[in-house]
Design a protein around this nucleic acid. Structure first.
Lengths: 243, 243
DNA sequence: GAACTTAGTGAACGGTGTTTACCGAGTTGG
DNA sequence: CCAACTCGGTAAACACCGTTCACTAAGTTC
């Protein structure tokens, strides 16, 4: 069997090498530096050989995106499994802080995956499946937090009717995702107001992190971390649980 | 005098032409398409001639950023002056909606100015001056809104001590900015809690708009506009004024 | 009108993505 | 075992790119 797949084996290996080199170039010198010729040079082959593995540079970048999403997902999941028995608010806190830490440590990857007009992120919106998605861990743990709240959140009826369809659709997706993980949520608990609040939390989490990564706060914040933590505290507090 | 500046005149004109073409390329085909050779081709000159105007492509892109910031600023100001006597909440609402409208209509410009790791935005954070800054109009009008609120905002003491220095610094900048416009704000009205809330509003505004421009909402929102409006309503409502 | 400044040129260098024809080793079937 | 076939890799070529340099010609200044 080893002999039968020998060629496939070396193929898979060089494919990994290609992406590893591409990733290294991205990290070191940014997206524009991810060059087919540079990758090939580093691997000791020629650029056209890469076309045996990817249709184009664009295609390679898309696959790179997927890799990055997978890695981010793994890191977030790891941060979560480090405190399996912690209360839901603490878990949300941990996942969010890990997301910020990762983004600041990997600005080029963050920019490619989360702030690119041209790159179609396969693991992002569109599929509808919450699995294989960048915000998966955050959204799941946020849903769990809301679900763990016995009291109904305050602003449930504030959601305008125009949003009901979209939110209901996403509600089903989230409920299914939590169910897959062994949890059980009711529609009355994870109501549309709660769904909207989870989305708003994603807006704030993404907003802060992106502003920090790109340095677009209106003034130079000497230490953004307490500001981030304060935002999380307020965010989680507003989810209904008295953190 | 006309003859004395004749050369300068044509120089200024071609300089404008260069940026106009660069802008057109950016809009049409994205940042990577903004090519010295393509610009020159469109202008009927050769690429090296552009070096008489800009040190490098990077330099040109930075100047392009400034242009874009100026344009955005003008559009936001125009939206504001269209309702000069409107109550402060309505003004904030209008400026925010205009920002979203502009970003969605100019995704490439938005990406260049607001979500770029390499481009040092001269009109963004750093200078400390609120003038010549991207968020200027939003931040000023938000400050005005908070200032117009007679009642002290609820969460003034929640801000942790670590943030005081940064917020106090920005408080002075904002007060000075409002004062320049003829307004008058007191430190007790535009207190640190209010400053923090303005920053949080910027986080949410930026977060939503960027997520929409880059298509990074966790699921496909069929019509994001009511969601945006809802966010604004909540945001403005939390500023203390009963919108 | 001489001296000087300056916008623009053309050629060149090294880099890029991509296509094409080709080769040679790995695999497969008779 | 050998012919047929698959497939990863190559070299050459094309059309781009940013950037530098020597040079020209027109505008400006004295």
């Amino acid at each position: 069997m080893t002999e039968a797949t020998r060629r496939e084996k070396v193929r898979a290996e060089t494919e990994r090498d290609i992406r590893r080199q591409a990733r290294a170039l991205l990290v070191a010198h940014g997206r524009d530096a991810v060059t087919l010729r540079a990758i090939a040079r580093e691997l000791g082959i020629t650029a056209p050989a890469l076309y045996r593995y990817y249709d184009s540079r664009e295609d390679l970048l898309n696959h790179l995106c997927e890799d990055i999403c997978r890695d981010l997902d793994a890191e977030l999941s790891a941060a979560l499994t480090e405190l399996p028995d912690a209360p839901a608010p603490a878990q949300v806190f941990a996942v969010c802080r890990e997301f910020r830490r990762w983004a600041l440590a990997h600005p080029q990857e963050f920019a490619l995956v989360f702030a690119s007009t041209d790159t179609t992120v396969p693991c992002a919106a569109g599929g509808g499946r919450v699995d294989e998605q960048f915000g998966r861990v955050f959204l799941e743990v946020a849903a769990k937090l809301v679900a763990s709240d016995p009291a109904p959140a305050p602003h449930a009826a504030d959601v305008p009717a125009e949003l009901h369809d979209d939110l209901r659709y996403y509600q089903q997706i989230l409920i299914a995702a939590v169910a897959d993980k062994g949890g059980r949520v009711d529609e009355s608990v994870l109501h549309l107001g709660a769904i909207h609040h989870i989305l708003q939390s994603w807006v704030r989490l993404y907003g802060h992190v992106a502003l920090e990564v790109f340095g677009r706060f209106p003034f130079a914040v000497s230490n953004p971390e307490p500001m981030f933590d304060l935002m999380l505290t307020q965010m989680i507090g507003e989810m209904g649980v008295t953190a």
